[in-house]
């Protein structure tokens, strides 16, 4: 086995029970030092956006969302968006190493299953990104479950999202468009994104889905 991130050999020894097939061997993707870079978000997090904190009260940003009368997304994220996660995203999204989609695949699917919603809708990427990057990073990570591509990107601007700050993001109008509204009427929907930064993307998509007839919208992401 080779660590998917640093490409060093994993010195893994099967335990006695694993050797005889009595306990299932977990296919490890990462070596110990790479794995330890990622910080798992525990149960002490903001109930609305999943941000890690010391208590379970609404965080400042979510209070602002509430003030703008946006519905809560009950967002949950697996990991903190720290340096390790940032360099993972750099390698996966911007370098385009599609292989890395497998690393968090199982955990993300687990998280999606736990929420128990009717439809799973990934946040789409623009046409331009699809032509240069060649894949949607969210669908890649969710490989293996049924997805509904209900949304598509309208914007034709070439500016990349990650270069915008919070103020810029708040000012933007609707980014998405519904492909087929018959799919979502009367359904509860789970939105999936790779990183939740300010929440504007997810709120934007949620608003659109609800206005087109979705019953409820929740969201999950890999990092927060």
């Amino acid at each position: 086995m080779i660590c998917a991130l640093c490409r060093t050999e994993l010195f893994e020894v099967d335990s006695f029970l694993q050797f005889f097939g009595l306990v299932k061997t977990e296919g490890k993707e990462l070596c110990y030092s790479c794995q330890s870079g990622f910080e798992i978000i525990g149960s002490d997090c903001c109930p609305d956006c999943g941000r890690q904190q010391v208590n379970r009260q609404k965080c400042y940003d979510c209070q602002r969302w509430q003030y703008q009368q946006k519905p809560s997304l009950h967002h949950r994220a697996l990991y903190k968006y720290n340096d390790a996660m940032r360099s993972f995203m750099q390698q996966y999204k911007f370098t385009g190493d599609y292989m890395l989609r497998k690393i968090f695949n199982r955990q993300l699917i687990q998280l999606v299953h736990n929420t128990n919603m009717d439809l799973v809708v990934p946040i789409p990427v623009s046409q331009y990104t699809m032509r240069t990057r060649g894949f949607n990073q969210v669908t890649g990570m969710l490989e293996g479950i049924q997805l509904t591509n209900a949304l598509q990107v309208i914007s034709v601007k070439k500016r990349q999202q990650s270069n915008l700050n919070r103020n810029d993001r708040m000012k933007r109008k609707q980014l998405f468009d519904i492909q087929d509204s018959t799919l979502i009427i009367g359904k509860s929907i789970l939105l999936v994104d790779d990183v939740y930064t300010t929440g504007s993307t997810l709120h934007c998509a949620a608003e659109l889905l609800i206005s087109c007839g979705a019953v409820s919208v929740k969201s999950v992401s890999l990092a927060r």
Binding site: G96, Y98, M99, G134, F135, N136, T139, G140
Partner: peptide
């Protein structure tokens, strides 16, 4: 090579 969606690869 490793596959990308839509018959592309890298």
């Amino acid at each position: 090579i490793e596959k990308l969606p839509k018959k592309h690869f890298y």
